[in-house]
Each structure stands twice: as C-alpha cells, then as structure tokens.
Amino acid sequence: MTAITERKLARPADRSPLDHASYGDRIFRGLLTLGAVTIPLLLGFLVLELWQGARLAMGKFGLGFVTNSVWDPVAVQFGAFPLIFGTLLSSLIALAIAVPLSLGVAIFLTEFSPEGLRQPVAFLIGLLAAIPSVVYGLWGIFVLIPALRTTAFPLLREVLGFLPLFRGPIYGPSMLAAGIILAIMVMPYVMSVSREVLLAVPDTQREAALALGATRWEAVITAVVPYARSGIIGAVILGLGRALGETMAVTMLIGNRHEIAASLFAPGYTMAAAIANEFSEAVGDVHLSALAYVAFLLFVVTVLVNAGARLLIWRVARGSAAGGKAL
C-alpha cells in the first residue's frame, strides 16, 4: 500500500512537459470510448424495441411461430416458417451462384489478367455495388424475369427436370429469380473482398510453388487460395449478410407468397420482404406484432449465421497462422 501512495505522491514532481500532450490524448480517447460504447447500446435498444413490439405475438404464438406455416391476417393466425425458409433458401441460391463466379473473377484479376485490365475491371465491379437495389429490382422485372421465363427456366426444366427443384409451372417471379438477382447484387462484395485478400498473399508463396514446377494455375490452387482461405470465407460471409437482409429487389422478384414449395420456379417470400410489404398495411395489433416478431427472428437468424461463420473462420484459421491475418 505505502509503495503505491508514495508513487502517486511522487508523480507531480516528475511531470515532464510531454505530459501536456496527454490532455489531447485523453479527450480523444474519451470520444472514441463514447463511440465504442454507443454501438452496443444502440444494438441493445434495437433488440429491446423489437422485443417490445413482438411481445403480443410472442405471447399468442410462442415458439410455434417459428415452425408454423400459416399466415392469415383475417383469421389472425401467423407463422413465420415459410419466411425463414425463403430467406435462407434465396440466400443459399445467391451464394451458390455468386461465390464461384466472384472467386473466379478475383483469381483472374489478381493472378492472370494483364496489368492494364486489373484496375478498370475492379473499379467497374465496385460501381455495381453502388447501384440502388430498386434499380436491380426494376431491371429484374423488365429484363431478367422475361428472359428467365421464356428461355432459362424452360431449359432448366428440360435438362434438370428429374430433380423436384426444377419441376412445376413457371410463372416468372420465383425463389430462383430472387436468388439470381441476389447473386448479382452480392457478387461485387464477394469479388472485391476476395480480390483484396488474394492480393495480400505474399509473392514468396507463389514463387515457392512455381519453383517446384507448378504452373501458374497450380500455384494458385496449391499456394495462393489456401493461404487466403480464411479471408475468402470472410468475403462469403459478407455476401451472405447482404443477401439475408436484402429487401427491395427480392420483394420485387420473389412472388411474395407465404408458401414452401419444392420447386425453385414457385414463388416464395423472405422475412425482410414480408416486413417491408405488410408493415404499412397491417390490419390490427396482432398482425403488426407478428411482423415485429419476424423482424426479431431475422435479427436472430442473421446473428446465428454470422456467429456460425465466424466459428468456421476461426477453425480454419487456427491451422494457418498466416492465413488468418488476411482477413
């Protein structure tokens, strides 16, 4: 105890002119701390608000809300299963299409493309991310859907019709159409993040593989991509996050029906789309509360998916000390 007090007392004596700088430091640190504290606080309020709004529906439907498929505002019966299903499925389709394509482009840009092409292409892809989602939605309605309905979907049904996924009537607006538009919207993010990550792979890794007699392509597969893998997973998660929450374009293309269908040609619905569509014209407190419940669930699903993905990155990165840094 005495030692501590002594040191405290001794302080003013050995204060140097440098100490003046620390006032600015302290203010700056205070501001930053405030900012850092605000975020969890905001999050807390958000969850609380959603919880408040959803209380009525939670009391009425309980956890059964998650597994129930009926959504009938007239009979005041609500279940969110088709919405959860639609959200996950459309995002999954989006990733299945977007990830290979984005990775391919990123690998091409960092490893194979001529120098002069790299920046312009990366810039253009960056622009794609800046287009508002209504515009994607409109493009989807006027260009994508007609093209899908008249050519792509019938062809898919012809070739892959033995799978239940590609059977049944073709309307146009559908789970698959939404998945495709989501894929297009998510691609710029996955592409540019994986590009950054690949660029961060040291040349010594490429050279080590090339010196073993690998071709450029083999060097990419054996050395570059594995080195960057946790960063690439991060890119995919970013894309997934975008896809899960995307609202406007999806609601314009998915058909907006509270149904679960085996066929990807059938319409569906997502949580975000349902909230956006029904909130303004909700009839009655229970309907409103059910939508808040959906919002709450969307929050939970997003958190779960992200946590799961973090876990995946962590497990992958554990094996590769260097790879983890790329993120």
């Binding site: 010594t204 890794q205 050279e207 080590a208 593989a209 090339l210 010196a211 073993l212 007699g213 690998a214 071709t215 054996t222 050395a223 594995p226 080195y227 893998r229 094996g319 590769s320 000390a321 260097a322 790879g323």
Partner: peptide
C-alpha cells in the same frame, strides 16, 4: 515447369505453405 523440377530452389526466407 519440367525444368524447375530438375533445378530446385530454396529461398532466403523459409516459405512453407502455411495451410
């Protein structure tokens, strides 16, 4: 590629494949 198999190279910094 075949040539580099017959003439191998070791670099200044160790470059194991970390994964």
């Amino acid at each position: 590629m075949q040539l580099r198999r017959r003439v191998g190279m070791v670099f200044q910094r160790p470059t194991p494949f970390p994964t």
